[in-house]
């Protein structure tokens, strides 16, 4: 590997971002047309998505090539670390909104609809007889009677799976630092396999919710917060597991050294973040 340069690496030009922006534009326009009932929107959605995937692939491919070419010095590495950290922070804030909506519904809007505080007439005139309870699909009984998702079934198993994946990832990381590539490859593979098993079980849970519990997106505020929180979390698990798969393939190709492996650590941070969000979900969405 070439000696890292003293110079802070600045690419001379890049074509990926502007094409990704165009891809996002096409995809979002397509989804918007679909939502408005225009079937033709699906083609734009596929085309836009394909552009994004191709460009992300090319962008990362180029950066990985540069990284392996040794032109990133320590300061570039620090930039990547800081960037990843603050990106994860923005994701935390994104999840915070949905947790806040859950908190607001349980502690403010439902009690108010049931007449708490100075809202007696809201209850008497608009929603007579409604009592505050959780889970709830509201005084209008939106989506019909449903059963909530029990915490101790699939969700508990999924908690165990995600927590184990955190452990296997840490073992892989220690193996990488110790230069034990065999252990690294095995435990990293275990990690993303656990991730994909989690996703499969999550799909199973959704099927159960829709077909047996009548728990749907339409099931009032419970259904809304349940599916949006677990859904966005599932999306992040998908992204995280895909990233784990990518760095596993890179490990197989012999990328990363015991001292320089930002991509591995960035993905690990992301995976732990997804893990912590799940703990929050398990406690506040399923359990309490």
């Amino acid at each position: 590997m070439a000696q890292p340069s003293n110079k802070y690496y600045i690419p001379e030009s890049t074509r990926w971002p502007v094409i990704i922006s165009a891809g996002l534009f096409i995809m979002f326009a397509g989804v918007a047309i679909l939502l408005n009932g225009g079937e033709i929107g699906q083609y734009a959605t596929y085309v836009g998505f394909a552009i994004i995937i191709a460009m992300v692939f090319s962008w990362f491919n180029e950066v990985i090539g540069e990284s392996e070419g040794g032109i990133f010095n320590d300061r570039v590495d620090t930039s990547f670390r800081m960037g990843m950290f603050w990106f994860i922070f923005s994701e935390v804030m994104f999840f915070a909104v949905f947790f806040s909506a859950l908190w607001y519904a349980r502690n403010l809007s439902l009690p108010w609809l049931a007449g708490e505080g100075n809202n007696l007439f809201t209850n008497q005139l608009l929603w007579e007889g409604f009592e505050n309870a959780w889970p709830s699909n509201g005084p209008g009984g939106m989506g019909g009677t449903f059963e909530p998702m029990a915490a101790m079934g699939i969700p508990a198993i999924n908690t165990a799976i995600l927590l184990s994946s955190g452990v296997t990832l840490t073992i892989a990381h220690h193996a990488l630092k110790a230069g034990k590539r065999g252990i690294l490859n095995i435990f990293l593979a275990l990690t993303f396999i656990l991730g994909f098993i989690f996703l499969a079980l999550q799909v199973e849970e959704y099927i159960e919710a829709y077909h047996q519990l009548n728990l749907t997106l339409e099931s009032g505020i419970y259904g809304a917060t349940f599916f949006m929180l677990t859904g966005f979390h599932g999306l992040h698990v998908t992204i995280g597991a895909t990233m784990l798969l990518v760095i596993w393939l890179r490990c197989l190709k012999g990328h990363f050294t015991p001292t320089k492996h930002f991509a591995f650590e960035g993905v690990a941070w992301y995976w732990h973040f997804v893990d912590v969000v799940w703990l929050g979900l398990f406690i506040f969405v399923y359990w309490l």
């Binding site: 994104f94 909104v97 108010w112 699909n137 509201g138 997106l217 339409e218 505020i221």
Partner: peptide, 29 residues
């Protein structure tokens, strides 16, 4: 900015997927 993104996403869900984030009848507000 992520907070705004989350909020407008809820609007989108309420409009097209019948969630109840901002509907009193479903327990939202």
């Amino acid at each position: 900015m992520p907070v705004l993104a989350g909020g407008v996403t809820m609007l989108l869900m309420d409009q097209f997927f019948a969630t109840s984030f901002f509907q009193a009848a479903g327990g939202g507000d």
